[in-house]
């Protein structure tokens, strides 16, 4: 249960907020959905981000800047209205439920990174960047943010930055049997194509051991190859996700089907672009 003496702060500037969260037990509050799940008694103060003016999506010449307070549904709506950010929107529209997507924010989801996150796989596949303020202020790639342990430090996520150009072929999927269920894993694939040739590729899965995995060998293998369904058989040996067993599924089952879906998604991309 959260403490009855919980203190609330509503700062209106980032520096104020950064200062507040330096104290032990004081953390940021965005959508609050994670905070309510953990119900940690150790939280003594919540710093609400709603006055920090982080609820924006700015479109610049080469990039989109998405404020951390943007909710999943706000992003999806923006994507529909402006015909952009489609891969991210496609992934996020599979998350949780309509009313929850009205609450869950980009920032809270980045900091939280649950196993069932629908956000991380597409961001890593898109090579997204993010800006943080606080202990390690700066701009980092989302991938290094999670891998370098930075995620644990005290900071405020200001925004994520995505390349404007969307000249790549992509697929995202979540594995769950039901529409409103915590997905077992999420896959995102993006291929930069030059005619029939693969110029660059990113193959990402989340929900695995160590949270996420990029199949770099597979990515390397694909680069320079021409699109062809034969690639599917060869790529198999490079895609070896490692899972932990849970009460419902064994790790080996998850590994089997994750492979199946990787191949499915790749083959869809290949067929669509052949």
């Amino acid at each position: 249960m959260l403490s009855e003496n919980l203190k609330w702060y509503f700062p209106s500037s980032l520096p104020q907020a950064v200062k507040l969260i330096q104290k032990p037990g004081i953390i940021l509050h965005a959508g609050g959905t994670r905070i309510l799940k953990t119900q940690s008694k150790n939280i003594i103060g919540l710093v609400d981000i709603s006055n920090l003016k982080l609820n924006y999506i700015k479109s610049k010449t080469n990039s989109f800047h998405i404020g951390a307070a943007i909710t999943f549904n706000e992003l999806i709506k923006y994507s529909k209205e402006n015909n952009c950010l489609k891969m991210l929107a496609a992934a996020l529209s599979q998350a949780a439920s309509t009313p929850l997507r009205n609450r869950i924010t980009i920032g809270g989801s980045l900091k939280d990174f649950p196993l069932w996150s629908n956000l991380y796989a597409p961001l890593i596949a898109l090579n997204a960047m993010m800006e943080i303020k606080g202990n390690k202020s700066g701009i980092y790639s989302v991938e290094e943010y999670v891998s370098e342990g930075m995620i644990k430090s005290k900071h405020i996520i200001k925004e994520i930055i995505l390349p404007r150009k969307e000249e790549f072929a992509w697929k995202v999927m979540r594995f769950a049997l039901l529409k409103f269920e915590y997905p077992l894993f999420n896959i995102a694939i993006s291929l930069k194509l030059n005619g029939k040739m693969i110029d660059d590729s990113r193959l990402v899965i989340t929900g695995v051991r160590n949270r996420f995995k990029r199949f770099k060998k597979a990515e390397k293998f694909l680069i320079g190859k021409n699109l062809s369904l034969n690639l599917l058989n060869e790529i198999e040996k490079f895609v070896e996700p490692k899972f932990v067993s849970d009460y419902k599924y064994s790790s080996s089952y998850k590994e089997t089907i994750a492979k199946v879906y990787f191949k499915d998604l790749l083959s869809e991309i290949i067929k669509e672009n052949l």
Binding site: L6, I35, L36, L46, D48, P99, L100, N102
Partner: peptide
Amino acid sequence: CLVLLDDKAVNSCQVLAMS
């Protein structure tokens, strides 16, 4: 527990009232 919060449906059990 759905209610409309500024015209958007939200799960009121997932919203801290102070916010």
